[in-house]
Design a protein around this nucleic acid. Structure first.
Length: 367
DNA sequence: TCTGGGGTCCTAGGACCC
DNA sequence: TCTGGGGTCCTAGGACCC
């Protein structure tokens, strides 16, 4: 039986690359950080994406901008334009459609996707040739660098991509023994789905590498992971039978806006918080209207000075996208919080249960 | 280095209906 | 009056990802 081939394509430093190669070509070759304004080293946000030049200075995504600023004050710090990333994403997804068997693309996030290429690999004379073609097409047609991982399933392909970045190609398999050998030395966190919490749990049982799991049975794994054991048992061995299903155009499930204050806000400054909520609700309302969407549920997130975080939500019987209603609901939810002593570090508003706005909206646009 | 902002998916209990 | 099982919606929280 001929082996199945899946490719995972991951954009390199996606937001930073869009800025360097598409929006601001003058930034190519320079350290670029997309994220919050560092405000001379006092800013409270973090870096969303760092170009490889910035990474060479020790900067990485998720790092507080204040720290990034100290590491490299002359990096270009730009807030970024989400819309341009969305357009760039659609462009490279379109290119992937051309190479995928049956045009099936599974979008995993804005900057990565899986494609089934079992037939393509034969036509192009092997996975490495096809991966190189795809990489070249994306570079020449969309002006974006990417890395490619190829393997007999999605799980292993994703791990492969991460092994060789930027502009890398990594082929794993097709033999199960090759896959086992590839995964054997890797830390458990190399797998998609194993984050900090799960890694900590496993470590309590002395488990840190996939090789260790390969030598265990499901029942030996059970005390550490319970119901998650069969899943990890398989993934550690590179077994993943999931079919690659095209998830079509992006369907948004929720929309949110958070704000961390430059300094924590005193618990009695409710008017100020209400005003901030108003600003966020206005922006969310505008985005909903632009996309012709209505919401069913509002969630208000509150994070306090000790970093404890709560969320409170409420659903309404009739969907709407009216900013004033949204604001009123958000204020009500906020005012009902049980925590009244601690200062407030962050407030956020999220709308979910999104549905398409009907003719009503069109009518109001006429009036 | 105190820890952003945008998301997704899963679980679990309770309400409510048939 | 008691009992059940299934389905769906709502709310809260948690894990994870980029």
């Amino acid at each position: 039986m001929k082996s199945r081939w899946i490719m995972h394509v991951d954009m390199d430093a996606f937001f930073a690359s869009v800025e360097q190669y598409r929006n601001h070509p003058e930034l190519a070759g320079r350290p670029v950080c997309v994220g919050h304004d560092p405000k001379g080293g006092r800013g409270r946000g973090v870096v969303r994406a760092a170009s490889y030049e910035a990474r060479a200075k020790g900067i990485h995504a998720g790092m507080p901008v204040s720290q990034a600023y100290h590491l490299c004050p002359d990096a270009a710090f730009i807030p970024g334009e989400f819309e341009s990333y969305s357009v760039a994403s659609d462009e490279f997804m379109d290119i992937l459609h051309e190479y995928a068997d049956g045009g099936r693309v599974r979008r995993a996030s804005i900057d990565e996707a899986y494609i089934e290429v079992t037939e393509g690999v034969e036509v192009f004379g092997g996975p490495r040739n096809l991966a190189a073609w795809i990489q070249d097409s994306i570079w020449h047609e969309a002006n974006l660098p990417c890395s490619v991982g190829a393997a007999p399933n999605m799980s292993v392909a994703k791990v492969a991509t991460g092994m060789n970045k930027p502009r890398g190609i990594t082929i794993v398999g097709p033999e199960p023994s090759d896959i086992m050998k590839f995964l054997e030395p890797l830390p458990v966190t190399a797998l998609n789905g194993i984050g900090r919490k799960t890694a900590e749990r496993l470590e309590k049982f002395g488990i840190t590498t996939l090789g260790q799991i390969q030598r265990m049975t499901i029942s030996e794994l059970w005390p550490a992971l319970g119901r998650g054991s069969p899943w990890l048992f398989q993934r550690a061995r590179g077994i993943d039978e999931r079919p690659l299903i095209d998830n079509g155009p992006r369907v948004r499930k929720s929309m949110s806006k958070d704000r961390t204050f430059l300094e924590d806000v005193e618990p009695d400054a409710v008017d100020y918080i209400h005003e901030v909520l108003g600003g966020m609700c206005g922006k969310i309302g505008a985005r909903l209207q632009k996309k012709a969407l209505k919401f069913k549920t509002v969630t208000v997130k509150m994070r306090f000075s000790d970093y404890s975080t709560i969320q409170r939500s409420r659903s309404i019987p009739v969907e709407t996208n009216n900013s004033d209603i949204l604001h009123r609901l958000a204020v009500e939810i906020f005012d009902q919080r049980e925590e009244r002593e601690k200062s407030i570090r962050l407030v956020g508003v999220k709308v979910s249960g999104l549905s398409e706005a009907s003719e009503q909206l069109c009518l109001t646009e006429y009036l």
